[in-house]
Write a protein that binds this DNA or RNA. Structure first.
Lengths: 97, 97
DNA sequence: TTAGGTAGTCAAAAAAATTAGACTTATTGC
DNA sequence: GCAATAAGTCTAATTTTTTTGACTACCTAA
């Protein structure tokens, strides 16, 4: 389905729409994310939804996935520069709450 | 279904989620809104969706509905103070696009 | 070698959001 | 009076999103 983009802020807004993305983003600001921890941290969520959200955030360029090859060999998600650029927007939003 | 609010920005984000709300908001910044004009301006939308979105934006306190009792007696939607407070967030968002 | 953790995928079901189309009520202009 | 415009509502269908549960594959520790 074709989506026409009229409002420039709309794309960004859409990036963070979805039931879990804002929460994931908030946690990513605090520290790198790992899949199973996230699943435990966000009660009410589930594997599939988190997997989808993480994939989308990655595709949108807000998060990046890294394989940590040391010690217990695992995967981390970190905010990209683009992702960090969104932090002030969140802060402003929180200021209005 | 119970929704627990962990992230304070999430509520605001949710306010503007949904297919048409960001666009409606953007138009509301420019001038007061009227139902049928909106329906014509936003191509691809429909009565029901706009009615729902307007009602929600109103409930969230971002828009207010006024009956204009003059001339051709009609209804207008305007940004509330709370709605206006969101304008800078939008601008910041646009700056990042 | 067997159990447990990590990081998922897949298909199907359930729930939520969006749309279509018929219908309503009130006010105008002619 | 008659037709048009404005601002919707209602029900049902369709589409999209989210959830569930089973299943993979790879490591590591005992």
């Amino acid at each position: 389905m074709e989506e026409i983009e009229t409002c420039p802020a709309q794309r960004l807004l859409k990036m963070l729409s979805g039931k879990w993305k804002a929460e994931i983003f908030r946690l990513a600001v605090e520290s790198p994310l790992r899949f199973n921890s996230l699943l435990r941290q966000i009660q009410g969520s589930n594997k599939q939804s988190l997997a989808t959200a993480l994939k989308e955030l990655e595709e949108e360029g807000l998060l990046e996935k890294t394989t940590i090859k040391l010690k217990p060999l695992h995967i981390e998600y970190n905010l990209t520069e683009k992702g960090q650029a969104l932090i002030p927007v969140f802060q402003q939003l929180e200021g209005l709450s």
